[in-house]
């Protein structure tokens, strides 16, 4: 299991976090914090006398300590939330997980079969130079769209999502072909049934060959789309093919 909520037989294809550009501001804030604290600590010796003699200034000193402490924790909590926000692509769903350590934990799940269109938006010089962009996913049910911003290596994730969508359609087709095969056996003569079954089996074989062994290549990643490990209760593509002897026995 790769994440909480992963379904039985569900395969994680890939996942991503936002592009490193979104974390750049956190680095900047952290550097600013380090600089401020260093200046304050190294120069405290010059004005510690004022703090010692004056209660009001001492309270101000305490206030600065508290603010710097809070700012330190807040900066690192922002870093952590960068790592906790993920987009997971599985063979059946796209899961947008927005999480912080204390304040937020929300999931948005998009069913692959309900995805109508996927658009890749990569406008602007920075997006093209740094290779990131937005994915706009339009759903079939109510034409609503979901935007996934700052997707790193957006070309790869766009192709990956398109491939997952196509594979889900082919899997659905294979299942419906299997159902048709069962129906044909009861509806036609033995010779006609065998002929039609062989034709459908060829279609299944071709669809199977297209999926297994293909690779999705990008500039930086190679993802092999492989047959999922057969597990109890789930079927692989091979299991969907009805063996010859079973057909002859039933006919």
């Amino acid at each position: 299991m790769h994440f909480k909520g992963q379904q039985f037989g569900e395969e994680v294809i890939c996942f991503c976090r936002k592009h490193w550009l979104t974390a750049l501001s956190h680095f900047g804030l952290w550097a600013l914090l380090v600089l401020t604290e260093s200046i304050f600590i190294f120069n405290f010796g010059k004005f510690h006398g004022i703090v010692e003699g004056n209660f009001g200034v001492a309270i101000l000193y305490f206030g600065i300590v508290v603010l710097l402490t809070i700012y330190l924790h807040k900066t690192f909590l922002r870093f952590f939330s960068y790592f906790l926000n993920t987009v997971v692509f599985t063979d059946t769903r796209v899961i947008l997980h927005k999480k912080t350590l204390f304040l937020q934990d929300s999931h948005e799940v998009l069913d692959i079969t309900r995805i109508q269109d996927v658009r890749k938006l990569q406008d602007g010089i920075f997006k093209n130079l740094l290779g990131y962009g937005d994915l706009m996913i339009t759903l079939a049910s109510d034409n609503s769209s979901v935007l996934i911003p700052f997707v790193p290596n957006v070309n790869f994730h766009f192709r990956c999502l398109s491939r997952i969508k196509r594979d889900a359609l082919v899997k659905g087709r294979i299942r419906s072909l299997k159902k048709d095969e069962e129906r044909l056996r009861g509806s036609f003569s033995k010779e006609k049934s065998e002929e039609m079954i062989k034709l459908e089996r060829n279609q299944i074989e071709e669809a199977y060959k297209k999926i297994i062994g293909e690779t999705v290549k990008s500039k930086t990643e190679v993802v092999r789309v492989s047959e999922p490990e057969p597990s109890y209760g789930s079927t692989s593509y091979r299991d969907l093919l009805i063996p010859e002897e079973t057909v002859e026995k039933k006919l």
Partner: peptide
């Protein structure tokens, strides 16, 4: 709860 398959492409 989330042992995701990390790689150099998912690190910062």
């Amino acid at each position: 709860k989330h042992p995701l398959p990390e790689s150099k492409y998912t690190y910062l």
